[in-house]
Each structure stands twice: as structure tokens, then as C-alpha cells.
Simulated scan of single mutants.
Amino acid sequence: MGDYDALLVLSFGGPEGPDDVMPFLENVVRGRGVPRERLLQVAEHYQGFGGVSPINRQNRELVEALRPVAGVPVYWGNRNWRPFGEDVVRRMKADGVRRAAVFATSAFAGYSSCRQYYEDIARISIEGGPELVKMRHYGDHPGFVAAMADHVRAAYGRLGDDDARLVFTAHSVPVSMAETAGPSGGLYEAQLRRSAELVNRALGREGRPWDLVWQSRSGPPQVPWLEPDVCDHLRALAEDPANASVVLAPIGFVSDHMEVVYDLDTEARQVAGELGIRMERAATAGTHPRFVRMVRELMDEPEPVPCPLTCCPPPRRPRA
């Protein structure tokens, strides 16, 4: 059992107004050589929602839901936008925090989904500040599975079709990154498939088909990423008249990032409409009571063994 006197929710961050969008995106891609034209394209997605990503609001809601169950003070910091993790750690030091559990809002292995959070922890740690201990991957935890199963069940209820095709989605990554995820490689996709299998089982759908597809790809077209894209998959499903309705379950996300509300609720929904497919999107884990309780249960587990430094290396950037 971890001996913690605080909990830090560590997340990606997101803009909270039109003027925040470009500075936020510049933080996200710093050092990656992303053309400004690409940033302007992505910025349009955010501006279509008033320049506000839902992720910060949902993290605030998660923190408030955690306060009664965590048993210790709960803090929240981000990688790319306010409140920045380094500022929060300074406040934790001033508050006398000695040792904090770190709950990353990403459930799976991989460079962006895990290793980068270890890098964040190293970057924001300060002399005399709290020891920060990242908790384990939790995509197979019963709390995460139960939350997702409840949300998928609710989506089926809204759709009113128990025979709808179940399609799980997760953030696509470069194939090279997927192949090196975990000590032996391939762990990102393997963990997602395991989570999808567990949710499908919790729904009592053993033996019924489900799919794992990808969304939110970015980067130069010459770099191969995990496929199929969710919109391409909807087009393939439409070739069979039996696939008249679909439930999308964003199992790769724990809250409604911009990727969820734009790539699924906007783009995928538009494609489904054009194809004549009825579509419902399941909610992310969010503040489901079982998911919230899961965080406390992770804190009560033995301290996880840190991943080796060779695990989930950063992606190889294409030469300019």
C-alpha cells in the first residue's frame, strides 16, 4: 500500500478561451517541427467550440468527485496549459506535501500515454518538493471496465437497438510508436484490445462482434499510423446492410477531449449520417462513481515498479 499524503491528477490540459488556443497548441508541439499551417487547421477545431476544450472542466469535476474518497488533499496540474504541473508542485511543497500519488488521465502504455507522464514528473519535480509516484496503467481495472460498460449500455439504450455494431475507438499513434510500446513492444494495442474484451464481456456480449479502430491521426502522410480510421471503418461497415446502427465507445480516453467531441461527435457523426447509419457515442469514464473509486483503490495497491527507461521510447521524427 502506498504511503501518500496527497493525490496529483496529472493531465494534458486544454485551452479555455479563443486567445488560449494557439499558445496551447504551440506548447503541445514544441520541438516537433509542426508547420504553422497545421496548427492553424487544428485551431479551427477548437475555435468551433468557442476556443474551449472540455478537458479542463471535466478534470475539475473529477477532482471534486475525488475529494470525498481520496482521503488526502487532491491537486490537479497539466502538461500543456494552466494549471501547469510545475506550478502545482511548488504549491504542494509549500503545503508540506511529502509524497504524492500521481494519477495520469491516460490508462494505457505508450510514449504519449505513459512515458511522457514519467518525463513530466521528472520535469516538474523540485528539490525539497514531494516525491511523485505515478500509478499503474488501469485499462483493465474493474472500475474502469464497469464505468465504460455502464456508458456503453446507456448508449445502446438511447439507440434502441441491441444489435448495433459495437466499435471501440482510441487515439491512433505512429506504427513505430505502437511497436515499441511496453518492454516487449505492442503493449498499447494489446492493452486496448484487452479492455475492449473486458467491457464486451461485462455487457454480456460474449461471442458478438466488436471492433477496435483508431481516430485523431496527425503528422505527415508518409509516416504510417495505426489503422483503420473510425470514419473509414464506418464506410466499410456501411457496405453490409446488417450494420444499420453503431455504438462508438471511446475506450482510449478517460474524458471528453477535443478529439472526442470533434473527431467522433462531429466528423464521425457526419459520416454516419451520410451513410445512413444510426450512431450513438458512449460517454467516457468521466466521473462515474466506479471510476472515481478506482483511483482510491489504485492508491491502496503496492507501489508500482517504474517502467525501464528503454520502455516506450519517443517517436522518431521525420527529417525536415
Rank of each mutant, 00 (worst) to 15 (best):
P250G: 01
V42E: 09
Y156V: 06
L25A: 10
V173D: 01
G31Y: 13
D140P: 03
A149T: 02
G71K: 00
G252N: 03
D162R: 11
L8W: 02
L309M: 09
R115G: 03
D161T: 09
A146T: 11
R60M: 14
P221R: 12
T284G: 04
Y4C: 14
S216R: 07
M299V: 05
G13F: 04
P315Y: 01
L159P: 06
S172T: 10
A146C: 09
P314T: 11
R316M: 15
R36N: 06
R269V: 11
N27R: 10
L309P: 13
N80L: 11
E37I: 13
H45Y: 12
K93T: 12
E44C: 08
T169N: 03
G286A: 13
F108K: 01
L39H: 09
P302D: 10
W214H: 05
M279V: 14
V247Y: 00
Y156A: 05
P142H: 03
Q270D: 14
E197T: 12
R278Q: 12
F253V: 04
G13N: 08
G77S: 06
F144W: 02
E26A: 07
P23Q: 06
P241S: 05
Y188W: 07
A146W: 06
D3F: 13
P54I: 01
A122I: 08
P224A: 07
L39A: 10
S53V: 06
L132I: 08
L66S: 01
V247N: 00
E303K: 06
T105K: 00
V292S: 05
A181S: 15
V42C: 10
P209T: 01
R194L: 05
C312V: 10
M258W: 03
H45G: 11
E280D: 05
V69E: 07
C312A: 04
G14N: 05
P209W: 02
V230P: 02
A282T: 02
P302Q: 07
D161F: 07
D229L: 10
